[in-house]
Simulated assay, not measured.
Amino acid sequence: MQVFAVPDLPEVRPGDSLATLVAERVDLRPDDVVCVASTVVSKAEGRIADRSEFPAGPRARELAAGLERATGEEKDPRFAQAVLEESAALLMEAPFLLTETHFGHVTVNAGIDRSNVRGGDLLLLPEAPDESAERIAAGLGADRVIVTDTCGRPFRHGQRGVALGWAGTPAARDWRGERDREGRELGVTVQAVVDELAAAANLVAGEGAGGTPVVVVRDFEFGDHGGSDALFRDVEGDFVRQALHEWSFD
């Protein structure tokens, strides 16, 4: 398997065709997986905003005040309002805002970014990353596209790449029913392939000012396995989220 960044991409602006920008710079093969950072997807889709567009309501002011007490740092209630509007659910109120986005991803601050933003001070996540991946795939004539992001992990330091949306591939390899080397049947193993490909892409794309937000994974084979698109846990089966409902920050 080869993983390489698409070189010389320009600064992406609202209305740009990511498919065209990529196709001009790399000759894709039919089985390539194209991993595109959500930051440039958001920029192309015009998801750039300013805090002034989010006048703070009572709930946002309450959240900002709580964060100030928890962290000792001044917090802008307009940012809290933006997080609320970009979220389907608020899972933690302090010492940071842990949210579920409208498309099911659980992340801090609804994934709103404040780095490398021109024309505003907030970069919102794509509204529907699966649809974004499908549009890019159609424009490229590619079979497989993954919209990626970086986020932290419970119980571990540091960030890693994850998939927000995907097209042309199942999210996971389902190994259940297959057998290990000793002949035992696998009962629970479902491998989150799109997350693993996103993490591999992030190793090449890097962070900060790297300027390489599109990565191609070549010669990856899904194999003869069942596929699953169940990447985001349902609340009923997410015991960590259920525990958070009973927890508060003191």
Score class of each variant (00 low, 15 high):
residue 178 E to H: 14
residue 55 P to K: 06
residue 63 L to A: 01
residue 33 V to T: 15
residue 227 G to L: 03
residue 76 D to G: 00
residue 2 Q to F: 10
residue 154 P to M: 11
residue 106 V to I: 15
residue 175 W to N: 09
residue 201 A to I: 10
residue 93 E to A: 11
residue 170 P to A: 00
residue 87 S to I: 06
residue 41 V to F: 06
residue 86 E to F: 04
residue 29 R to V: 07
residue 101 T to Y: 03
residue 69 R to A: 14
residue 166 W to M: 01
residue 162 V to R: 10
residue 122 L to A: 05
residue 139 G to A: 06
residue 222 F to S: 08
residue 44 A to S: 13
residue 111 G to F: 08
residue 31 D to Y: 12
residue 206 G to N: 12
residue 139 G to H: 05
residue 211 G to T: 09
residue 31 D to A: 15
residue 201 A to R: 08
residue 1 M to W: 04
residue 26 V to F: 05
residue 1 M to Q: 08
residue 168 G to K: 07
residue 111 G to E: 09
residue 13 R to F: 01
residue 135 R to S: 13
residue 176 R to Q: 11
residue 209 A to C: 12
residue 192 A to S: 02
residue 9 L to I: 02
residue 216 V to L: 02
residue 11 E to G: 10
residue 198 A to C: 10
residue 78 R to W: 02
residue 48 I to P: 09
residue 16 D to S: 03
residue 28 L to A: 13
residue 47 R to C: 10
residue 183 G to T: 04
residue 241 R to G: 12
residue 236 E to R: 01
residue 158 G to P: 02
residue 60 A to P: 04
residue 84 L to V: 07
residue 133 A to L: 02
residue 52 S to H: 10
residue 179 R to S: 09
residue 209 A to W: 12
residue 22 V to L: 05
residue 186 L to W: 14
residue 44 A to D: 03
residue 32 D to H: 10
residue 182 E to W: 15
residue 214 V to I: 11
residue 47 R to V: 01
residue 105 H to T: 01
residue 123 L to M: 08
residue 228 S to F: 01
residue 223 G to R: 03
residue 56 A to V: 01
residue 79 F to P: 05
residue 57 G to V: 08
residue 40 V to N: 04
residue 122 L to Q: 06
residue 2 Q to S: 13
residue 12 V to Y: 11
residue 102 H to M: 02
residue 161 G to E: 05
residue 144 R to V: 14
residue 147 V to I: 15
residue 79 F to A: 08
residue 233 R to I: 00
residue 188 V to H: 14
residue 147 V to M: 04
residue 210 G to T: 13
residue 246 E to N: 09
residue 44 A to E: 04
residue 206 G to H: 09
residue 137 A to N: 06
residue 158 G to F: 12
residue 154 P to V: 08
residue 132 S to A: 15
residue 69 R to N: 04
residue 64 A to Q: 08
residue 24 E to P: 05
residue 99 T to E: 03
residue 199 A to D: 11
residue 43 K to N: 06
residue 223 G to H: 02
residue 80 A to D: 12
residue 236 E to H: 01
residue 116 N to W: 10
residue 212 T to H: 15
residue 113 D to H: 11
residue 197 L to M: 14
residue 107 T to M: 10
residue 189 T to H: 11
